[in-house]
Nucleic acid binder design. Structure first.
Lengths: 239, 239
DNA sequence: CTTTTAATAGTCACCACGACTATAAAAAGG
DNA sequence: CCTTTTTATAGTCGTGGTGACTATTAAAAG
């Protein structure tokens, strides 16, 4: 490593960008804010902000998450560092290095637009195009990462409320992957994986929906899936 | 996102840290440099350096990789961004945010210690302890990531020369995972995965070693492994 | 009361994989 | 030269995970 005396150039600004994902009405949504000023004025962007001198990027990301969503307690939410985007010129004004995170929410409260934030709202993932800066890329990377981690971790429960049915859990996979899954096979697989889910004591069931009432489950103690729950191979697969 | 006018604090220094891994004599080695100055003078550290104003972190990492290893062409080497370490106080002198990368090398030339770098050398992974700063953590994260990616990507070929035998490829897995693998089963699995490896035309074989000459293979076109090559479950598994 | 929807139970066949045996072809050591 | 050792390679066998599928139950919707 070089000596620090060679540090003779303008410094960097360090920010965090958040891809906050949730499931609303059976489709994937992402939290976006509308930019009020140039550049990209009027365009949608991922929420984010500067890392403060006494913060780690993780701390800054959780603070921004609380500010943007208006949630009281974000300590239990799944926050995952994606990667860092550092291309020169990704912000036309100055040299900005941004640490990107993905956050997964079970329910979807309307954002309260806390503080001086511009308009904030949930947008369907498929409609979130033409974002400011390189946020299209960041959002796509977040989607890829989440989709991949569903295969070999228990991440799917992060999209679910504390108690959920296997149908809700299956919809997480179907929505993120964009595929259909066989109901009985999914059920067998999940229940056969120790620590993935555990039944709510008392045999509670969720009624009020269509069809037969479903048993309620909680997230188990496991964090990894052995063996993984592989997504079905795409149709047009390369030979 | 807040306005940039609120950017009123001391800036960050941005560096890259590299966990350069290779296989030497059947064991995993990591490239380390000896620190010449405080803090951590005399301790081993991961190579790295400052990101220049006109560089991305990836560009800086590749530049540092070339400088530290003395290799002419590092363009084909696998370089993977791990994550960014941004805890306040991880460098006692100033606020440093470091983007960590893992680099995988097939052969292991002795480092030439290019430029003003202190002493640099390969150290067995198991002996690389008590590193400077938070580099123990970064190195462990690199090992975890590489071990995990061996399961579901073709990353293992990045440790191999352009032409390699299935025995060499198997040793990559065994060395990184620290487990033994059944030779015939490994062979069947690799050859059954389309695009993982392809035989060298002409049926070239590697002689000179012990035992029966082995057929030579090249890395195939695939980048992901479907289905994955799962590592054998650990003995003391939690119930 | 019928239809619809979803949860749940169960069956069956295939195949990927672990465990294992056997054979071939080289070097090493007498 | 012959035996041992080492590694590559071929093949077998049984189990279990999984996809595809059918059947049943229990609720809401019409």
């Amino acid at each position: 490593m070089r000596g620090y005396d060679k540090y003779a150039h303008e410094p960097f600004a360090v920010t965090v960008d958040l891809a906050v994902l949730t499931l609303r009405a059976g489709s994937l949504h992402v939290l976006l804010v509308e930019r009020g000023q140039e550049p990209y004025a009027g365009r949608w962007a991922l929420p984010g902000g500067f890392v403060r001198p006494d913060e780690s990027a993780e701390t800054a990301a959780r603070r921004e998450l609380a500010e943007e969503t208006g949630l009281k307690d974000v300590s239990g939410l799944h926050l995952e560092q994606l990667r860092t985007y550092s291309e020169p010129g990704r912000d036309p004004r100055m040299r900005v290095v941004s640490v990107a995170f993905a956050a997964l929410l079970p329910d979807a409260p309307e954002p309260t637009g806390g503080g001086d934030a511009a308009r904030a709202r949930w947008l369907p993932y498929d409609d979130a195009k033409q974002l400011a800066f390189d946020h299209d890329r960041i959002l796509a990377d977040a989607h890829d990462r989440v989709g991949a981690k569903l295969e070999y971790t228990c991440l799917a429960t992060a999209f679910c409320p504390p108690e959920f049915t296997l149908g809700e859990l299956r919809q997480v996979y179907e929505t993120v992957w964009g595929t259909g899954l066989d109901r009985p096979n999914f059920r067998r697989k999940v229940l056969a994986t120790p620590g993935f889910v555990e039944p709510v004591p008392g045999g509670a069931r969720l009624t009020g929906g269509r069809g037969k009432p479903a048993a309620l489950y909680r997230a188990g103690a496991a964090t990894a899936l052995h063996p993984p729950l592989l997504r079905p191979p795409r149709e047009g697969r390369s030979a």
